[in-house]
């Protein structure tokens, strides 16, 4: 279980990192909590490893008018300690205790989770439920992609290979928005068996994780929840593209999706983090 040979680069500015990515066959190292095991299992074998940890300015949480801008290298632990997150991104605050364990949260980054797009990870669904944008940069420029359009499949995203996730832009929720989050994990800190994040305000957004090959919006459930009809919302999950895993078949995933939706709704509240 040793990684194959690779070249290690530790640029100190974003431009240098982008240039390395443009050369091809490179992977960036953020918190390393997923990438290092994948390399050691030889499931990931980049020629060049571009360590982002010495680049200033990629981490941090800032208020920018009606949005929060979260640097890609912001660690879970820093999100957990942030008043801005607690106030303006209460879904993230609620979900954080469920994401892995303290040691992993000390290293793991929001950008890493977004770029990895694990189907059972919380962050993609949270960003979808919050209507977030993902900022990407490459040597040829910069663009923003809505979270809804970013997560495409199993570990598959709209990010091109030479693009760096630089920021996550989270709009502040409209006053009075209800937020709910619930996940079922067999052991605390594990990737979930089923989970959901919901935001019900002017817009209604319901995003599931760990039930399909990527995080999923649930349009029928959203329509039902807009009128507060949780039964109809749960019934509206029929058409979602559920995927089995070795411990839960499609029927179980579907059933558990309904359960987490009801529980997230029951536990939802307005205002900042209450979890």
């Amino acid at each position: 279980m040793k990684a194959p040979d690779f070249r290690y680069e530790r640029p100190t500015d974003v431009e240098a990192a982008l240039a390395l990515l443009a050369d091809g066959d490179a992977a960036v190292l953020a918190g390393g909590q997923s990438l290092m095991p994948m390399m050691n299992f030889r499931l990931a074998r980049p020629q060049v490893l571009v360590d982002l940890n010495r680049i200033d300015g990629l981490a941090g949480i800032a208020e920018d008018g009606e949005a929060l801008r979260i640097g890609a290298m912001t660690r879970y632990a820093d999100l957990a300690g942030s008043d801005l997150i607690a106030t303006y991104a209460p879904l993230i605050a609620r979900a954080l205790p469920h994401i892995a364990h303290p040691a992993i949260r000390n290293r793991g980054t929001i950008g890493g989770s977004v770029a990895l797009a694990d189907p059972a990870a919380e962050m993609p669904a949270l960003l979808m439920a919050m209507g977030a944008q993902i900022a990407l940069r490459s040597t040829s420029g910069m663009r923003e992609v809505a979270a809804d359009d970013f997560f495409l499949g199993l570990y598959e995203t709209a990010r091109a290979e030479d693009e760096l996730v630089t920021e996550i832009i989270v709009p502040k929720p409209a006053p009075g928005t209800r937020h709910g989050f619930y996940e079922l994990a067999r052991r605390h800190g594990d990737y979930a068996m089923a989970g959901v994040a919901l935001a019900v305000g002017e817009a209604v957004r319901v995003a599931f994780f760990a039930v399909s090959d990527h995080a999923l919006r649930a349009p029928e459930a959203e329509a039902a929840l807009a009128s507060g009809d949780i039964d109809a919302a749960a019934a509206g999950l029929e058409g979602l593209d559920f995927h089995a895993d070795p411990n839960a078949d499609v029927a179980t995933k579907k059933h558990l999706a309904g359960v987490v939706l009801r529980r997230a709704w029951a536990g939802s509240s307005t205002g900042g983090n209450t979890a």
Binding site: P37, F41, R186, R187, H188, G189, Y191, P246
Partner: peptide, 29 residues
């Protein structure tokens, strides 16, 4: 009783060969 099971598919491939998917009991539970 609750967590651990080595899972093989019908070709005899073991499906859980890491600590992420062969679940051992942990302190919190």
């Amino acid at each position: 009783a609750l967590y651990e099971e080595v899972i093989y598919d019908e070709d005899g491939q073991q499906l859980n060969t890491s600590m992420a998917d062969y679940l051992v009991p942990m302190a919190a539970e």
